[in-house]
Design a protein around this nucleic acid. Structure first.
Length: 500
RNA sequence: GAGGGUGUAGCUCAGCCGGUAGAGCAGCGGCCUUUUAAGCCGUCGGUCGUGGGUUCGAUUCCCGCCACCCUCACCA
């Protein structure tokens, strides 16, 4: 045990260790083995009339204590709610009361007693049996609340972002809205799975460790397998493996999983993040647009009960159908410039005119993408599908049936953010090889995020992949949207941090 | 990666144009058997993020470093 740590926290932790000794002297195990509870706090609060005068036992963490000599009020919190109990010396044994007196905020206790309402009108439990279940040795931030006109005022809220992320367990204990956000996250994923399962799609698992990474433009994490003595990459996308499964004969597969990208961290990017990818045989990107708006609407209704949501002060209406706007029309709409078919010279000039900064090695498509990101994206608050991207940007998408300079691809945008990516999947192995080769050329020109050539994937396509629609959706961003969270770190339990 | 901001008691924060720090809550002791930011009395608690520099003297001024936040860049 590290005595130094104890010293760091001064006398508070020392006092609590001393209480451990006192408890053991009283023959109380401060780390009990089990407790039989009959109810959750939430059950009782939700239906006082049927619990009144009934005996219940509940367990949870002590969140507040108000001692008055031979009696005390306290709140305990379980995963459902916080409930008040009233303990008095004439209702419990002297030993039990002595144990209670040694309790601190943060201790986990079990109580037995009858449900009643106090003079002040709060549903409470009159304690007839009290047990300490787990002693708290490290003081919890004390957050106090006051109800004024039905509004909850919070005092001394635990707000230090760094500590909240590093010690999420503390954040979860003292900040109820954080617990709710992560419950919502879980429900969103469950609803998505339910939606996809109901359509008959098969949930599958594909490799996280890949000898050749692909399916997106990003730098990977690199690792090494000792026994095989080979370099492996953490996946940046599931795409190429899922399409191999379509080659294998499955007609609808999806995967919900972590992807890893070795890039910067900011409020919308975490190095590991959760992605859903779906591939459906015999369908194209138009099918996928309908699916996306239908699925997102379903999830919003299931989780939030509405399709009208508020995100960071913006009212957003998720009701379908979402408008569909082509990539070049979107640029025209927000810049009044028609960039379709423009040559490199024109693009460079236009970028300069629009104050868009460029890198030397960028191709035309990348310049277009940059102009789009800067001049169009911020305007896309209400849901919209941006369709038909330049072919160079999308080495895995099928050429547009009406215009070979474009691909059949769309990205849904909500709240100015890309929520996903979808296309009619390229299944011509000869075209695919050429696209990979031009990516390799871009890589050699300095683009570290260009795709690598995956020979086995081309081999798979040579066996024949049916026409297929594919979709990737960023789960974290969807959760941010539906929980009104400003940062991706608010929807990931343990976001990536520098070592303490 | 660049610019800006923050870092003081367990928590939330004051303060210091340079003289080694305060409050509320929490803790500890006392009184208190319907309180709810319980109350009253007393009391403990800090190498002021870290390492240097200037100075008689630095928590305060200057520089480096660390961590976090914001903006920008890169990306989903």
């Amino acid at each position: 045990m590290s005595n130094d740590q104890t010293m760091d926290l001064g006398h508070v932790m020392r006092d609590r260790r001393e209480k451990l000794t006192s408890l053991r002297t009283m023959n109380v195990n401060p780390f009990a083995y089990e407790f039989d509870r009959t109810h959750n706090a939430g059950d009782i609060l939700a239906d006082f009339d049927s619990y009144i005068e009934k005996e219940v036992s509940v367990a949870g963490r002590l969140m507040s204590i108000r001692k008055m000599g031979k009696a005390a009020f306290a709140h305990l919190m379980d995963s459902s709610a916080k409930i008040q109990f009233y303990i008095r010396l004439d209702q419990v044994s002297e030993d039990e009361y002595a144990v209670f007196k040694l309790c601190d905020i943060g201790d986990i206790v079990g109580i037995k007693g009858k449900v009643f309402k106090t003079h002040a009108g709060e549903i409470s439990i009159l304690v007839s049996g009290f047990e300490l279940l787990t002693k708290n040795l490290r003081p919890l931030p004390i957050v106090k609340e006051q109800i004024v006109d039905g509004e909850k005022k919070v005092f001394d809220a635990f707000t230090d972002t760094e500590m909240r992320y590093r010690q999420r367990y503390v954040d979860l204990v003292v900040n109820p809205q954080v617990r709710e956000t992560f419950v919502a996250r879980s429900k969103i994923i469950t609803a998505m799975r339910q939606y996809l399962d109901n359509k008959g799609y098969l949930e599958v698992e594909t490799p996280v460790l890949q000898p050749v990474y692909g399916g997106a433009a990003a730098r990977p994490f690199t690792t090494h397998h000792n026994a095989l003595d080979m370099t492996l990459y953490m996946r940046i996308a599931d795409e190429l493996y899922l399409k191999r499964l379509i080659v294998g004969g499955y007609e609808g597969v999806y995967e919900i999983s972590k992807d890893f990208r070795n890039e910067g961290i900011d409020r919308t990017h975490n190095p590991e993040f959760t992605m859903m990818e779906l591939y459906v045989a015999y369908k194209d990107y138009k099918f996928m647009m309908n699916l996306v708006e239908d699925m997102v609407t379903f999830i919003a209704k299931t989780v939030a009960g509405t399709t009208k949501i508020n995100y960071q002060g913006e009212e957003i209406n998720l009701d379908p159908p979402w408008p569909r706007l082509s990539f070049f029309d979107a640029i025209k709409k927000y810049t009044d410039l028609d960039l379709a078919g423009m040559d490199r010279h024109g693009l460079l000039q236009t970028a300069g005119q629009l104050d868009v900064e460029l890198e030397d090695f960028w191709g035309n498509a990348k310049i277009l993408d940059e102009i789009f990101s800067e001049k169009v994206e911020p305007h896309l608050i209400q849901p919209v599908f941006i369709c038909d991207y330049p072919v160079e940007l999308s080495p895995l998408a099928k050429k547009h049936r009406d215009d070979p300079r474009l691909v059949e691809r769309f990205e849904p945008y909500i709240a100015g953010r890309e929520m996903g990516n979808s296309f009619s999947e390229l299944n011509d192995p000869i075209d695919q090889r050429e696209r990979f080769e031009s990516q390799v050329a871009m890589r050699e020109a300095g683009d570290e995020e260009a795709h690598a050539l995956d020979e086995d994937f081309i081999r798979a396509l040579e066996y024949g992949m049916p026409p297929t629609a594919g979709l990737g959706m960023g789960i974290d961003r969807l959760v941010m949207l539906l929980t009104d969270s400003a940062s991706i770190r608010d929807v990931i339990f343990f976001p990536t941090m520098r070592q303490e």
